[in-house]
C-alpha cells in the first residue's frame, strides 16, 4: 500500500456490469462498479446477493453463460483483460491472478493426490524439472504450515481436515507466484480458531510477496482486521468505501445497519437492531 501512488495500479476496473437473464428481462447483479487496486489489501463486504462474488469472478472473466459481463475498462498491470483471447486469459488465470474459493471440499479434485494437484497448478504455467517441481511443492506446503509435507503430498482430499484443505488450496493458488490474489470467503467453511490461522497465513504471504489481495466476505469485522481498504456492496453497487480503520465511522445507513446487527462480545442490548430494507431498496 506504500507505493500505490507512485506506480500504475495493479488493477483498474471501470463501470463493471454483470447481468443475468430472468423471465422478467435482464437483471443487473453488479451495476457499474469501479475501483483501482494497488499492491494493497482490499476488502469487499456485503450480504448474499450483493454481487460481491460476481465481481471477483468477473475480474477473471469467469461469469458463465447466460450471464454477461461488460465494463468500460478492466486493466490488469497494463493488460486489457477484456480484449484478451480465451487462451491468453487461461495463461493468466492462476499464473498472475489467483482465486481461493469458499469451500475446500468442493474445489479440490477428490481422485487426485494433494501433491499431484499442487504440482499440476505449477506445471500448467511453468516448465520445470520433476525434482524442482517436487521441491517447490514441499516448500510451499511448508510455507502454509503443514507440518509433515512428505506425508501430506500422498494423501487424498478426503483424508485431510477442512482447515488443512483450505491451506492446501492456498498453497495451490500461491505456488505460481501470482500478483493478485482474490479470496472469496476463504474461511466461511472453517472454525473460528482455524479461521484466524488461515487469514494470518494469507496476510503474511501477501505482505511478504507484495501481492495485491481482494478479500471477499460477509463478515465486516473480519475484513476490517485484515484489509487496508473496504468497499461495502449492496444490491450490485458500492454504497460506501473507506479505510478499514475508519469502518466504525461509516456513515451510510446500510453499513451502519450491518455493523449494528452483529452481536458483540459484551452484549448489553436486549434486542439487535434489524435492517429496514424498505428504506434504500430503491437506491
Amino acid at each position: 500500500m506504500t507505493s500505490e501512488k507512485t506506480q500504475a495500479p495493479l488493477l483498474d476496473l471501470q463501470n463493471l456490469r454483470v447481468s443475468f437473464p430472468t423471465p422478467k428481462g435482464r437483471v443487473d447483479v453488479v451495476k457499474g462498479l469501479s475501483f483501482t487496486l494497488g499492491r494493497e489489501r482490499l476488502g469487499i463486504v456485503g450480504e448474499s446477493g450483493s454481487g460481491k462474488s460476481m465481481t471477483g469472478r468477473a475480474i477473471l472473466r469467469l461469469i458463465r453463460r447466460p450471464g454477461v459481463q461488460q465494463a468500460d475498462r478492466i486493466l490488469f498491470d497494463g493488460i486489457d483483460l477484456q480484449s484478451l483471447s480465451e487462451r491468453k486469459m487461461r495463461d493468466l488465470r492462476g499464473a498472475r491472478i489467483s482465486m481461493i474459493m469458499q469451500d475446500p471440499k468442493f474445489s479440490l479434485n477428490p481422485v487426485m493426490t494433494i501433491g499431484d494437484q499442487i504440482a499440476e497448478a505449477l506445471k500448467t504455467h511453468e516448465r520445470l524439472a520433476r525434482s524442482a517441481v517436487k521441491s517447490r511443492v514441499l516448500e510451499m506446503l511448508h510455507a502454509v504450515r503443514i507440518n509433515d509435507p512428505e506425508r501430506v503430498v500422498t494423501l487424498y482430499p478426503h483424508e485431510v481436515s477442512g482447515g488443512m484443505g483450505q491451506r492446501i488450496m492456498i498453497a495451490m493458488m500461491l505456488i505460481p507466484r501470482p500478483d493478485l490474489l482474490i479470496a472469496d470467503e476463504p474461511t466461511s467453511a472453517l472454525d473460528v480458531s482455524v479461521q484466524a490461522q488461515v487469514l494470518d497465513l494469507i496476510d503474511e504471504l501477501v505482505r511478504e510477496k507484495g501481492m495485491g489481495l481482494i478479500l471477499i466476505s460477509h463478515d465486516l469485522n473480519l475484513v476490517a482486521r485484515y484489509c487496508d481498504r473496504i468497499l461495502v456492496m449492496h444490491a450490485g453497487q458500492v454504497v460506501e468505501s473507506c479505510a478499514a480503520a475508519d469502518l466504525h465511522k461509516a456513515t451510510h445507513p446500510y453499513t451502519r445497519g450491518l455493523l449494528a446487527a452483529v452481536p458483540r462480545m459484551e452484549e448489553t442490548r436486549d434486542e439487535l437492531p434489524v435492517l429496514d430494507r424498505s428504506t434504500w431498496s430503491g437506491t
Partner: peptide
C-alpha cells in the same frame, strides 16, 4: 445466515 438475517432470527428466538 447473513448477519442482518442472523439478527432477526436471534431476536425471534429471544
Amino acid at each position: 445466515l447473513d448477519v442482518s438475517v442472523q439478527a432477526e432470527i436471534l431476536n425471534l428466538l429471544k
